[in-house]
Design a protein around this nucleic acid. Sequence first.
DNA 1: AGACGCCAACTTGTATGCAAGCAAGTGCAC
DNA 2: GTGCACTTGCTTGCATACAAGTTGGCGTCT
Lengths: 232, 232
Amino acid sequence: MRHNACMTTQPKAADRAYAHIRESLLDGVYTSGDLLSEGTVAADLGISRTPVREAFQRLQNEGFLRVYPKRGAVVVPVGPEDAHGVLQARLLLELFALDALAARGAEAVRETGRALLRDCEQEQQGTTPSGARELGRTFHCRLVGSAGNPVVAGLYETLWNQQERIAAAATAGSAHAAQDVAEHAAIATALHEQRPAEARRLLADHLAAVLHRSGFSGRPSLPPEAGTSASA
Amino acid sequence: MRHNACMTTQPKAADRAYAHIRESLLDGVYTSGDLLSEGTVAADLGISRTPVREAFQRLQNEGFLRVYPKRGAVVVPVGPEDAHGVLQARLLLELFALDALAARGAEAVRETGRALLRDCEQEQQGTTPSGARELGRTFHCRLVGSAGNPVVAGLYETLWNQQERIAAAATAGSAHAAQDVAEHAAIATALHEQRPAEARRLLADHLAAVLHRSGFSGRPSLPPEAGTSASA
DNA sequence: AGACGCCAACTTGTATGCAAGCAAGTGCAC
DNA sequence: GTGCACTTGCTTGCATACAAGTTGGCGTCT
């Protein structure tokens, strides 16, 4: 590539490739089962295969793609059982975070509630789809991060990637964004007003609602097993 | 590289590089803070930088390395708080797995106990350090996998990488392997004999003991917060 | 017609060359 | 002696060339 317009974009080509493919995946340009190759994507972006290869790897261990040894990379299809599993895991981690936060003391709970409320205010403003995605991420990641366990926070970030993949594959992309924001605000308020028990309940309801809205709720009840194990 | 002895090993060079670096990390050849470069490792292995680069990436998102944009890759140091966080996360996930397993019915509990006992028999035989590592992994991963939630299982595999990193950095590498095996066997037996509640208790004790033996137990008590949130 | 084998078009895997970036050390000017 | 610019040696980032593997189809032989 001689016409390499490398001046126009400082960020690494690998990052551009990663962002591009990820966006295409989340926006439905590539759909479940699609087979894409390094060469094709590289040509589309006007870069070489090397950074695209790197992006493929990252997307693979985030669960978006699956690279077959010498065939290409297929977009991993996501089914109801995946959605159920992800939401169950999220419930487990987020309830743990709430408990750990409560154990850190009243002041920590209050401060976290305040920070989360700020996130919610931003959520009410930003309206672009990708913006909403990002804000939802910050809200839940901050919630889990408040537990003070970086390892769990890292695990949750991994989980969130799969969450986004499911949301993208769901029937309605972000049709219920307003409802999400409202539930987020309720959780944040409960924390800020020192009612952690209610926050727990609201969070469980929120996740159940998210699963239901995604259209993947084949089985009626998400809370039973996860709820009993992490709370009772 | 003309003397490329590529005939001796069919598996991909990237995998060899990954395995080599990982082993070197776990065996203490590279220690915390070490700075290593693609070129050096490539030369050591007699391959080119490309597969080494791929290995670096994999090791980075497994938490072993941290690649600095144009400087090199440093071996991520691990401290007591990391050990605490990992063990807390393990407790959370493994207790969840136990509960989910119990919810799947008595027969599932029994069968899982049987499979875990088989793992323990193998553990008693294999004595090489890397063999013991692998068997411990299979035991705990099978335990978590028995919950029937692949997402949680995937999260746990991620966790286990960090677990191994901690074990490698711990004072005694695998001096207490026999004790581990005994505790594993106790857990498996409890499951096989349909005493899930005791299995829970044994598991919590086992993890607390692992943390203590690692030498990273700066704070006296692991169970308090994690135990209350996930079990009480 | 059916089956077998070859071939051609894809794909990834690896090596290598080149350019750019960062750090430290060197030497010069003041 | 002190401070600064340059140079040198390292590193990664990317592009490209080549090797090897897989797939599907086409032609031929039975």
